[in-house]
C-alpha cells in the first residue's frame, strides 16, 4: 500500500492492519505524553482545496502526535484560486520535501490523479474527493463499529472484523463519498449493508454495489440493525428537486425521535446511531437521537485521529510502502470479444 485513495481496492488484511494499528494509537491519546517519535523528521502536507476544518485538524493532530512536521495549505486565497493547476501546486509542495500529501479536493479522482500521474513521489492520502471516496472516514466508522461489535461479543477488537453486523446507511447516497467508501470497506470486513435513500439520491448503477437498497427507512429498521449511519443532506440539494421539502425528507428519511423510540420497541437495545458530521439537527437526525447514549458521533471524531495516525504511520514507514497499490489498469482494449 503506497497510497490510501479509496476503500474499494483496500484488501481485508490492509484494512485490519490499519484498524489494529489505530487501536494501539488510540492508547497514546490517553497518556501523559501524547506523542510518538515515529515520524520525526517527516513532513506531512495537508493540501485542502475544499474547506473542511474538522478533517484538517484531525489529520493535523494525527501527524503531530507522530512527531511529523505539518504544513497546512489551503487553496482559498492562494495561487490555486488564481488558476494554478493541481500539478504545479503538488510539485511546489514536493519541492519542499513533503513525504506525504493529505489531499481534500472538490473533484472526484484528484487524489488518484496526484498519486498515479508521476507528478510527485510522496505518499498520497485521500481526505475526501468530490463525491468519490473518503477512506479515512470509512475506516474510523469501521473502527467505531468494530469496538462496539467486539464489545458485544466479548472478544478483543484487534484482529477482528465486522462479520454479521447489520448496518444501515441512510440519506444522500448519490453525493456521498462517505457512503461510497463505507459500502466497500464494510463489505470487505463482512458487514451486511443496506442503503436507504429517496430514489433520487441513489446513483444509477447502485444495483451493482455489494449491498441492499431500500427506499423505506422504517421497513429497513424492522428487519433488525446493529448500526444506523445517517448521512448529511447538503444545503445545495434542498432546492434541486431531489425531494419536495426538508419537512418531507425529515419525515420519511430522517432519524427522528419516533424512530429512536422504535429501536427500543424493536428490542434493538444495542444498536448504535452514527453520523459523520457535521449534523443537520432536525433534518436527517433529531437532537434526541444525536445526543442519546446510542450516538457514537463523538467517538467517531475521537477515533478519527487514531485511524489517521495509523494510516500515516503505515504509509510512511516500511514495507507497506513498497508494495504498489493495484493501480487501475489502463490496459487496452477493454472491450470483451464479441460473443
Amino acid at each position: 500500500m503506497r497510497h490510501l485513495l479509496d476503500t474499494e481496492s483496500l484488501s481485508r488484511d490492509h484494512a485490519i492492519a490499519i484498524l489494529d494499528t489505530a487501536q494501539e494509537m488510540s492508547a497514546v491519546g490517553e497518556r501523559e505524553v501524547k506523542k510518538l517519535p515515529a515520524l520525526r523528521g517527516r513532513t506531512v502536507v495537508n493540501l485542502f482545496f475544499e474547506d473542511s476544518t474538522r478533517t484538517r485538524i484531525s489529520f493535523e493532530a494525527a501527524a503531530k502526535r507522530l512527531s511529523a512536521d505539518v504544513i497546512n495549505f489551503s487553496a482559498k486565497g492562494s495561487s490555486v484560486s488564481k488558476g494554478e493547476s493541481l500539478k504545479d501546486t503538488a510539485q511546489t509542495l514536493e519541492a519542499m520535501s513533503a513525504d506525504a500529501v493529505v489531499i481534500r479536493h472538490w473533484a472526484s479522482g484528484a487524489p488518484a490523479r496526484l498519486a498515479n500521474s508521476g507528478w510527485i513521489d510522496a505518499a498520497v492520502i485521500n481526505a475526501g474527493d468530490g463525491t468519490h471516496a473518503h477512506p479515512t472516514q470509512a475506516l474510523l466508522d469501521a473502527f467505531t463499529m468494530r469496538a462496539h461489535w467486539a464489545g458485544l461479543a466479548g472478544t478483543p477488537s484487534v484482529g477482528g472484523d465486522l462479520a454479521g453486523m447489520r448496518v444501515i446507511i441512510a440519506g444522500d447516497v448519490l453525493h456521498s463519498r462517505v457512503a461510497r467508501s463505507n459500502v466497500w470497506l464494510l463489505r470487505t470486513l463482512g458487514a451486511r449493508v443496506t442503503l436507504v435513500a429517496p430514489p433520487t439520491l441513489l446513483p444509477v448503477g447502485v444495483e451493482h454495489w455489494p449491498c441492499e437498497v431500500s427506499y423505506d427507512l422504517d421497513a429497513a429498521l424492522e428487519k433488525g440493525v446493529d448500526a444506523v449511519m445517517m448521512l448529511r443532506v447538503q444545503a445545495e440539494r434542498m432546492n434541486a428537486s431531489f425531494f419536495p421539502s426538508t419537512r418531507e425528507y425529515a419525515r420519511r428519511w430522517g432519524f427522528d425521535d419516533a424512530r429512536l423510540a422504535r429501536l427500543d420497541a424493536l428490542a434493538l437495545k444495542d444498536t448504535i446511531v452514527m453520523h459523520p458530521g457535521p449534523m443537520n439537527r432536525g433534518l436527517e437526525i433529531s437532537s434526541a437521537a444525536a445526543d442519546s447514549p446510542r450516538s457514537t458521533v463523538l467517538d467517531q471524531v475521537r477515533n478519527g485521529v487514531s485511524v489517521r495516525m495509523a494510516a500515516l504511520y503505515l504509509l510512511l514507514s516500511g514495507d507497506l510502502k513498497s508494495t504498489p497499490a493495484p493501480a487501475p489498469s489502463a490496459a487496452l482494449p477493454l472491450v470483451k470479444d464479441l460473443p
Binding site: E8, D129, G130, T131, H132, R180, G205, H208
Partner: peptide, 18 residues
C-alpha cells in the same frame, strides 16, 4: 456530466452523462 452514467460512474462518484 463527466462520464457515462451507469455502473462505473456510480462507483467513481462522477456526474453521469445518461
Amino acid at each position: 456530466a463527466q462520464m457515462n452514467e451507469g455502473k462505473v460512474s456510480a462507483v467513481l462518484g462522477l456526474a453521469g452523462w445518461p
